[in-house]
Design a protein around this nucleic acid. Structure first.
Length: 107
DNA sequence: CCCGTGACGCCAC
DNA sequence: AGTGGCGCCACGG
């Protein structure tokens, strides 16, 4: 198994996100050393098995929104998990200012 | 190899 | 604030 593959690095970074915080796709890509690969983060998470322990639900887009059609089963599933961790939604949006994880970047 | 697709992001209207 | 266009790039047909 190649633990340095982009896929694996993305999994590793996502698994570092603490409960109660969120990160954006672009942020994950950047942290994994893969700038400009935000879309790849999405496709990689999409391939995760349903029983994966990786907190994929903490990854949202740069607008603070869940990247699924509002009301879809997937949207609701992700929202449920986030609400359960104490993350607040305001008109379908999460305040990145308040909940975005700054792991490894702040002073 | 060309082309469409996508759990994205940024900028212009 | 909503919409649309385009850059980005891995993937599959």
């Amino acid at each position: 198994m190649d633990y340095s593959s982009p896929k694996v690095r993305i999994w590793q970074v996502v698994s570092l996100v603490p409960a109660g915080s969120v990160v954006t796709y672009g942020q994950i890509a950047h942290m994994a050393g893969l700038p400009h690969h935000a879309r790849m983060v999405g496709s990689v998470l999409k391939q995760l098995p349903p029983d994966s322990s990786i907190p994929w639900h903490r990854v949202i887009n740069c607008q603070g929104r869940i990247s699924f059609p509002q009301g879809s089963p997937q949207y609701l599933r992700q929202q449920e998990r986030l609400l359960a961790e104490g993350i607040e939604f305001m008109a379908e949006r999460i305040s990145l200012q308040q909940f975005q994880w700054q792991g490894g970047f702040e002073s």
